[in-house]
Design a protein around this nucleic acid. Structure first.
Lengths: 187, 187
DNA sequence: TTATAATCGTGACAAATGTCAAGACCTGTT
DNA sequence: AACAGGTCTTGACATTTGTCACGATTATAA
């Protein structure tokens, strides 16, 4: 299932077979069932993940045990508790399967090795980091300027399938409102 | 005033004199007075900026003409309307001086040239992009999990000088509350 | 100096959202 | 069939925050 990864990278930079072969050696495949955790709060974060198929939630639990969905992660996304991954500290978030999920995993050592020995992968990672940064900036701005109703309608438009695949309470948590408020917004 | 830039880069990667000389050729110095715009909404975004001294606000104006402060930018920060800068589209935000400000500017061509011809700068930019991404992620999470009072106290603790340097209405806009609410939080 | 514009705090009220409680509905298990 | 657990909606009420209005104070410019 590494073809998916190659396609994904080649959306940005074309690779020779040898180049991709070198890159793909740094990834291992894993499969998880619904309700399994890829990362649990407090764990070491050994891997970052490229998602082949399935659906995950990245969750932060605050002091009052309230859960906040930082993101839903699906096919073709990269996900991890990146802060913990890059700084080699304990996870402050958890990453849990909402559906059966297949991923490619790589370690921080793999990341560094790829940076040092694959110029194209370095360029790819820079592009990804920049893009991720821009996306996060836009999300902050969107969060600042929109109200829950607008966020609800935007999400419904962008990912209509989510509303079939996950409980409304998780959608509410992602949008930053109580599930009662979400219920009232949608009626 | 390029010494500041060198110090800044060398916090991450040490440079030889020749390496820094090559890098510094890509930057030009500019000075702006309070109330001047480095970027205005609708303009082409020719530059990204490294701030030597001064204070700026990055502002998004929504449909109802309400202004939202995306960030305050100060000494040692990089700032621009990055989305417009990287995609070469028109600015959706403005960048305006709150105090007299001195910056180093570089263009997207400079950025690409540095990536292609300065391996150390490439590594530096990847590090910066990753760090910016992580910081934005954390800011989203903080925004989701905190209320205005907590955000106010956090900002006061982290940047106490801001409260002397800029009007409270801008602080309120940065925190995402009305100036009246901010006024009540602080009393 | 004087005039003008910004800035800041506060009261009164409206609107949005959270919290708590209750009940309906669905699903899977025994 | 009966039950338990989870999900979703809705009402009642409390809390938070926004909006509008006003006046006092402080900066800025003519």
């Amino acid at each position: 299932m590494q073809e998916k990864l190659r396609e994904h990278i080649e959306k940005i930079i074309k690779l020779t077979d040898e180049e991709f072969s070198f890159i793909s050696q740094h990834f291992i495949t894993k499969k998880f069932k619904k309700h399994q955790f890829l990362i649990q709060e407090g764990d070491d974060v050994k891997y970052a993940y490229f998602i082949i198929s399935g659906l995950l939630k990245l969750v932060y639990t605050d002091e009052s045990l309230k859960q906040h969905i930082a993101s839903f992660a699906m096919e073709d996304w990269w996900e991890s508790d990146y802060y913990a991954f890059f700084t080699q500290t304990k996870a402050t978030m958890s990453l849990e399967c909402l559906e059966d999920t297949e991923v490619l995993c790589f370690t921080l050592d793999d990341y560094k090795d790829l940076c040092d020995n694959s110029p194209k992968m370095l360029r790819f990672l820079l592009e990804k980091a920049n893009f991720g940064f821009l996306a996060s900036q836009r999300r902050i701005l969107y969060w600042m300027t929109s109200n829950p109703k607008e966020r609800y309608e935007q999400l419904l438009k962008q990912y209509p399938s989510l509303f079939q695949r996950v409980p409304k309470s998780l959608i509410a948590s992602y949008l930053g409102v109580s599930r009662e408020t979400l219920s009232r917004l949608s009626s």
